Computed example of a mutant assay.
Amino acid sequence: MKFAEINLLTELEKPEFKDLREAMNERRFVATEMIADPSCPADDITKPDFFAAGSVFIVKEGRLRVFLSAEGKEFTLSILEVGDIYTCHTGTFVQAITSGVLLTTSLSVFHTYMRDIPQVSKVMVRILGNMLKSSFGIIDGLVFGDASTRLAGFLLSIAKEEDGKLMARLGMTGEQLAQHVGSTRQTISTLLNDMVRSGILVRIKRGVFEIADVARLEELNK
Results as ranks from 00 to 15, higher is better:
residue 1 M to I: 07
residue 1 M to P: 12
residue 3 F to Q: 14
residue 4 A to C: 08
residue 4 A to F: 11
residue 5 E to V: 01
residue 6 I to T: 09
residue 10 T to V: 11
residue 11 E to V: 15
residue 11 E to A: 12
residue 11 E to K: 11
residue 11 E to Y: 05
residue 12 L to R: 01
residue 12 L to K: 05
residue 14 K to R: 14
residue 16 E to Q: 13
residue 17 F to Q: 00
residue 18 K to M: 08
residue 20 L to M: 10
residue 22 E to C: 02
residue 22 E to N: 00
residue 22 E to F: 02
residue 25 N to W: 03
residue 27 R to N: 09
residue 33 E to T: 01
residue 33 E to Y: 06
residue 33 E to S: 02
residue 34 M to H: 08
residue 34 M to D: 07
residue 38 P to E: 10
residue 40 C to K: 12
residue 42 A to Y: 14
residue 43 D to S: 05
residue 44 D to W: 08
residue 46 T to C: 09
residue 46 T to P: 00
residue 46 T to H: 12
residue 46 T to G: 02
residue 46 T to I: 00
residue 49 D to H: 12
residue 50 F to E: 06
residue 51 F to W: 15
residue 51 F to Q: 12
residue 52 A to Y: 06
residue 52 A to F: 08
residue 53 A to N: 10
residue 54 G to Y: 00
residue 56 V to L: 07
residue 58 I to H: 05
residue 58 I to F: 14
residue 61 E to W: 02
residue 63 R to E: 03
residue 65 R to Q: 10
residue 66 V to G: 08
residue 66 V to M: 04
residue 68 L to W: 08
residue 69 S to D: 07
residue 71 E to Y: 09
residue 71 E to V: 05
residue 71 E to I: 01
residue 73 K to P: 04
residue 73 K to D: 09
residue 74 E to L: 01
residue 74 E to D: 15
residue 80 L to N: 01
residue 82 V to Y: 04
residue 86 Y to M: 11
residue 87 T to H: 13
residue 87 T to I: 10
residue 89 H to P: 01
residue 92 T to D: 01
residue 95 Q to R: 11
residue 99 S to P: 07
residue 100 G to V: 05
residue 104 T to S: 07
residue 105 T to R: 00
residue 106 S to Y: 09
residue 108 S to E: 15
residue 110 F to Y: 05
residue 111 H to K: 15
residue 112 T to H: 14
residue 113 Y to P: 02
residue 118 P to E: 09
residue 119 Q to G: 00
residue 124 M to K: 06
residue 124 M to I: 14
residue 126 R to L: 08
residue 127 I to N: 13
residue 128 L to N: 10
residue 128 L to T: 07
residue 132 L to K: 10
residue 133 K to D: 10
residue 134 S to P: 05
residue 136 F to D: 13
residue 139 I to S: 06
residue 140 D to E: 14
residue 140 D to G: 11
residue 140 D to P: 03
residue 141 G to H: 04
residue 141 G to S: 11
residue 142 L to G: 15
residue 144 F to G: 00
residue 145 G to Q: 04
residue 145 G to W: 02
residue 149 T to R: 13
residue 153 G to W: 02
residue 154 F to E: 01
residue 156 L to F: 06
residue 157 S to D: 07
residue 157 S to F: 09
residue 158 I to C: 05
residue 159 A to S: 10
residue 162 E to H: 07
residue 162 E to L: 10
residue 163 D to A: 04
residue 163 D to P: 01
residue 163 D to I: 01
residue 166 L to F: 07
residue 168 A to I: 12
residue 171 G to L: 07
residue 171 G to P: 05
residue 171 G to R: 12
residue 173 T to S: 15
residue 174 G to Y: 06
residue 174 G to V: 09
residue 180 H to M: 13
residue 180 H to T: 15
residue 181 V to Y: 04
residue 181 V to M: 00
residue 183 S to M: 06
residue 183 S to Y: 09
residue 184 T to H: 00
residue 184 T to V: 10
residue 185 R to N: 12
residue 190 T to N: 11
residue 191 L to A: 03
residue 196 V to G: 03
residue 196 V to R: 06
residue 199 G to E: 09
residue 202 V to A: 11
residue 205 K to S: 13
residue 206 R to A: 15
residue 207 G to C: 09
residue 213 D to F: 04
residue 214 V to N: 08
residue 216 R to M: 08
residue 217 L to S: 01
residue 218 E to M: 11
residue 220 L to A: 02
residue 220 L to I: 00
residue 220 L to M: 14
residue 221 N to R: 15
